[in-house]
């Protein structure tokens, strides 16, 4: 294993609302699940710290509303984290707290270092633009101005995710759900990001398509050595993909460790319940 983590998150917080005298202090706050019963402020992510190593897949599990997706959105800057620090081991940003950078610089990080696959393809794709155009969008954002080259990269990736090339100029709105998801993966991979975020990518896909998408993710990780964070509420997905796993509940990480360890010998009461409720 490598020593230097490629991504390091320290004490990430995401709060929706202003907070009140009852909930502003971390030690004395009395929350009902993840919100304050007095003022309704939602503490979506609380004191989350973790590290991601090169080539590793980190799984995040938890029930809906536990803060998994909010965490991902903060990491991809779709949402602004309320507090905490983010470090990326990259020559341009060494030792800099990424959350403290300007929006323009964050966009730069996002365009060059990160990739994201959303649960809902409508969020990650422009449904009225061609599939090849969608991939080019990410390349254009990363500064590419050469049509021929972008077309070549796009075709290579579409082929990799098994989209027939004769349909590359079609809009994703005319594709099936599984195909849309694969176009999204191709788009996220287009500038070869060292870090990729996958938010519930297989949810809502039928089993055979799920299997092929998972297979694809695993292949990409092996071939390209990309580090990934995979969010899912499906333990089978986590078991298959993730090297290490974090369990989230009510905005907090309640358990973390090697995936096998967490799933075979859960320590926390909630994790035990989660693992044993598996049919």
């Amino acid at each position: 294993m490598h020593d230097e983590p490629i991504l390091k998150i320290q004490r990430l917080e995401k709060v929706f609302g202003r907070g009140c005298s009852h909930c502003q202090h971390e030690d004395t706050r009395q929350l009902e699940k993840n919100f304050c019963p007095y003022c309704g402020t939602v503490y979506a992510c609380r004191n989350i710290s973790f590290e991601l190593f090169p080539g590793e897949i980190l799984g995040i599990v938890g029930e809906s509303g536990s803060g998994k997706s909010t965490l991902m959105q903060c990491l991809y800057f779709d949402e602004t984290a309320t507090g905490g620090e983010m470090f990326i081991n990259h020559e341009d940003f060494k030792g800099k707290n990424i959350f403290a950078l300007s929006n323009q610089q964050k966009r730069n990080v996002r365009n060059h270092i990160l990739g994201m696959v959303y649960q809902n393809p409508t969020k990650g794709l422009k449904m009225n633009f061609s599939s090849i155009g969608n991939i080019a969008e990410k390349l254009i954002a990363a500064g590419n101005r050469h049509v021929g080259e972008m077309e070549r990269v796009g075709m290579e990736l579409l082929d990799k995710v098994h989209i027939p090339l004769f349909r590359m100029k079609e809009e994703p709105k005319r594709f099936s759900g599984g195909m849309q998801q694969r176009v999204q993966i191709a788009k996220a991979l287009s500038n070869y990001p060292p870090i990729l975020f996958l938010d519930e990518v297989t949810t809502g896909l039928d089993l055979s398509v799920q299997a092929s998408v998972l297979d694809l993710i695993k292949t990409i990780q092996r071939e390209m050595g990309i580090s990934m964070i995979v969010v899912s509420h499906d333990l089978a997905v986590i078991r298959m993909l993730a090297d290490r796993t974090m369990v989230m509940l009510n905005g907090e990480v309640i358990e973390a460790g090697l995936t096998d360890q967490v799933l075979e010998d859960p320590q926390d009461a909630y994790t035990q319940q989660l693992v044993y409720s598996l049919l």
Binding site: R107, G133, E137, I140, A141, V147, M150, E151
Partner: peptide, 15 residues
């Protein structure tokens, strides 16, 4: 962030 403007031209070239 002008990817959108470029993307429109890219789409025209593709089509």
């Amino acid at each position: 962030e002008y990817s959108g403007a470029w993307l429109q031209l890219f789409e025209q070239i593709m089509k």
